[in-house]
């Protein structure tokens, strides 16, 4: 497994995509650091960009990577190694590459111009979201036999979790405005990895007051250790479950 991962990394870290993505993230971080000296403003702006871009890039890149390497994956399946190892080596290589890009892309400017806990959380959330959406992408890839379809599904999931879901939540909140909604919204947040990432970030910043009573409730909940554990735990489940299902499907797939 580690051997296969080593060689998969040789390939992926040298890919043009990895270099462009890292460079792009560095550029974003540098320009946002230039705009403001206030670290919490910096992390808020970075978060808004990251929460849209990182899942999108992860989903698209992981799908294309899987399909570009399909023939090579087939060749590895003809070697005396376990199927799950072949799959996991590719998966971990993609997640590691995406994480490294974020660490370098956002981390280097942070080393230069300083960081606070919110920015460290930002890095962690970015890495977790990469893993979640790489998982979605690999799941979509093993379930289909067509690259275009797999990219379609990955993009669909990104649109759903980044845009559609929020509209859905707003609709529920408005139509049920007469009822106490804190617990319901809390539950709804846990069902969306992007929102979970956003909440984890926002709770590091002192802007939850802007979110009214629900915001205060969230602040109280997520600031407690239990709340923090629940949110992180839910995000970890979002990372593990799609990847586990994808590994299972890969084990039974025909090539």
């Amino acid at each position: 497994m580690l051997k296969l991962l080593k060689y998969a990394l040789y390939d992926i870290l040298k890919s043009r995509f990895a270099i462009i993505y890292t460079f792009f993230l560095v550029l974003i971080a540098i320009s946002i650091y230039q705009i403001s000296d206030d670290l919490s403003k910096v992390s808020l702006s970075l978060m808004n960009i990251m929460i849209m871009i990182v899942p999108l890039i992860s989903a698209v890149f992981a799908t294309t990577h899987f399909y570009n390497n399909l023939e090579f994956i087939e060749l590895m399946l003809a070697q005396p190694v376990k199927r799950s190892q072949v799959f996991l080596s590719q998966l971990f290589a993609v997640i590691l590459m995406l994480s490294l890009s974020i660490l370098i892309g956002f981390g280097l400017p942070m080393l230069l111009w300083g960081a606070d806990t919110s920015l460290i959380t930002l890095l962690a959330v970015g890495i977790m979201l990469s893993a979640v959406f790489a998982g979605f992408a690999f799941l979509a890839s093993v379930l289909t036999r067509d690259k275009a379809k797999a990219i379609g599904i990955s993009l669909g999931l990104w649109i759903y979790f980044s845009l559609v879901y929020d509209g859905f939540v707003l609709y529920i909140i408005y139509s049920l405005a007469d009822y106490p909604l804190e617990k319901l919204t809390l539950g709804l947040v846990i069902l969306n990895p992007v929102d979970l990432g956003r909440i984890l970030m926002l709770m590091q910043l002192d802007i939850s007051a802007l979110m009214g009573y629900t915001g205060a409730f969230f602040k109280q909940f997520f600031a407690s250790n239990v709340g923090w554990l629940v949110a992180t735990g839910a995000l970890v489940i979002w990372m593990v479950v799609p990847n586990l299902i994808a590994t299972r499907v890969f084990g039974k797939r025909d090539f």
């Binding site: 040789y10 390939d11 992926i12 040298k14 890919s15 023939e71 090579f72 087939e74 060749l75 003809a78």
Partner: peptide
Amino acid sequence: YMPQIGRYPANM
């Protein structure tokens, strides 16, 4: 096994 089309990771 020698496959019909051998395609390998481009940067390896």
